[in-house]
Design a protein around this nucleic acid. Structure first.
Lengths: 120, 120
DNA sequence: CGGGATCCAGATAGATACTG
DNA sequence: CAGTATCTATCTGGATCCCG
């Protein structure tokens, strides 16, 4: 067990909603911004909420919160709160999250390699 | 260019809706059944519509049609129609689709390796 | 600064019925 | 056998406003 939050992914596993383990991997990184959030945290190490937000000019505050919270519930992202005023919150990848990086880098490479195919 | 169908993925590229190339890779395999359909075609070589359907007891006819059609529009899957009665249609991976297999296998391995983490 | 609540729109999946 | 059309349920993301 990772933490006491009930992640949706874990529920899917319990309800046998996956055809196969690769769908677990897929669902962890699926979400309009998740894969890129993981990638940034994996390359930059630690980022504050506002720093991540600045990386995505078009994301709204609430949506970023939701995406990060889900990654946290899935055990991919670690959240560290500093008891200061104004509050400071730093995010980083957990060990599990870091183990996802090779997969994401491979997807990155495949995309760079093949994106030409999709452009006229 | 691949074919004359307008794939949603290609439109997203043109509209610059991706933050990064890995989101291209992700969106090609995202969809409740796509990644597993690609995997089956990659390992079995060629499958008929009804054969694929049998592999997913819970998928409906129409949903399978839609998923395959999108994969076809994205240039991942090749569709061969035999002009017979009753009709026969065989699906297989294109070269582009086959190049996705290592990525999917890596996701499979990651899932098998880490699924224990998610079970109490 | 970071987060939560509410309401809403669009996309995706599923049920069902019909076709050559 | 494979595919289409219609309708509906669900999910996810987004807009907006409020809070310590």
């Amino acid at each position: 067990m990772m933490d006491d939050l009930r992640s949706e992914v874990r529920k899917k596993i319990e309800n046998r909603e996956f055809n196969c383990e690769k769908e677990l991997t897929l669902s962890l990184i699926s979400g309009k911004w998740k894969i890129t959030i993981i990638y940034y945290l994996g390359t930059d190490g630690t980022l504050r909420f506002s720093e991540i937000k600045r990386l995505f000019p078009k994301i709204t505050h609430k949506v970023l919160t939701t995406q990060i919270r889900e990654l946290e519930e899935d055990g991919i992202v670690h959240r560290k709160v500093f008891p200061e005023v104004p509050p400071r919150v730093e995010y980083s990848l957990t060990e599990l999250g870091q183990s996802l990086m090779p997969v994401i880098l491979m997807m990155y490479d495949w995309g760079k390699e093949n994106i030409k195919t999709f452009i006229k």
